Simulated assay, not measured.
Amino acid sequence: MRTQHHGHFINVALIGAHQISPGVIESDLAESVSDPEGRERMRTYRSVAIPASSVAAAIAFAMGQPAGVDVGEIIVRPTAGRT
């Protein structure tokens, strides 16, 4: 099951017994904001976004574990911009 908001990003994905919680993911969301100031804020916020392929790799890791190994939760977030 996947929960999506406006079709732009996965907020929380439940795959089997795995919970994947990504941070900011690359998308064109900023371009859909009609308010110019809000659009610029969204662009700034998303400037450290990670590619969707990084979230896919985390999901593949969780799903690829051998029988008897449970990866219950993965939080994937960008490292750029961290202090």
Rank of each mutant, 00 (worst) to 15 (best):
E37Y: 05
I74F: 04
H6P: 01
R39T: 08
H6R: 07
V12I: 14
F9K: 07
G64K: 06
H18G: 02
S53R: 11
H5L: 12
Q19V: 15
A60T: 13
M63E: 13
V69L: 04
Q4A: 09
G38I: 05
T3F: 10
D70P: 00
V69S: 08
E37R: 03
E37T: 09
R41S: 11
R43W: 00
H5T: 14
T79L: 15
G68S: 09
R46W: 05
E40I: 01
I74R: 01
M63R: 08
A62W: 03
G72S: 15
R43G: 05
I75A: 13
V12T: 15
V55H: 01
G64I: 11
V55S: 04
E73W: 07
A80Y: 11
V69N: 02
H18F: 08
T3D: 12
A62M: 02
P78K: 04
V24R: 09
V12P: 03
S32T: 15
P66N: 09
P22V: 07
L29Q: 08
G72V: 05
R41H: 12
H8D: 12
Q19S: 13
R41A: 14
V69H: 02
A62P: 01
A17V: 02
T3H: 11
V12H: 10
R77I: 14
V24F: 04
F61W: 10
D28M: 03
R46N: 12
R39Q: 15
A58I: 08
I25P: 02
S54A: 13
T79S: 15
V55K: 00
A58G: 10
R2M: 10
I50Q: 13
A52W: 02
V48P: 00
S34K: 07
D35A: 06
D28P: 02
V24C: 03
T83H: 07
I10M: 04
Y45L: 14
F9N: 04
S54Y: 03
T3V: 12
H18M: 13
S27C: 09
L14K: 04
S53C: 05
A13I: 02
A30T: 10
Q19L: 15
V33K: 00
M63I: 10
H5K: 05
G64N: 15
G68V: 05
H5Y: 11
S47R: 14
P78Y: 09
G68D: 14
I15F: 03
A57S: 14
I25Q: 11
D28C: 04
S27Q: 03
T44D: 06
Q4T: 09
A52T: 10
R43N: 02
L29E: 11
I59Q: 04
S53H: 08
G16H: 06
I25K: 01
V55Y: 01
A67F: 06
A52Q: 10
G72Q: 06
M1L: 07
F9R: 08
G68M: 07
H8V: 06
H18R: 06
G68R: 08
S54I: 03
A30V: 08
P66K: 09
H6C: 10
L14G: 04
T44G: 02
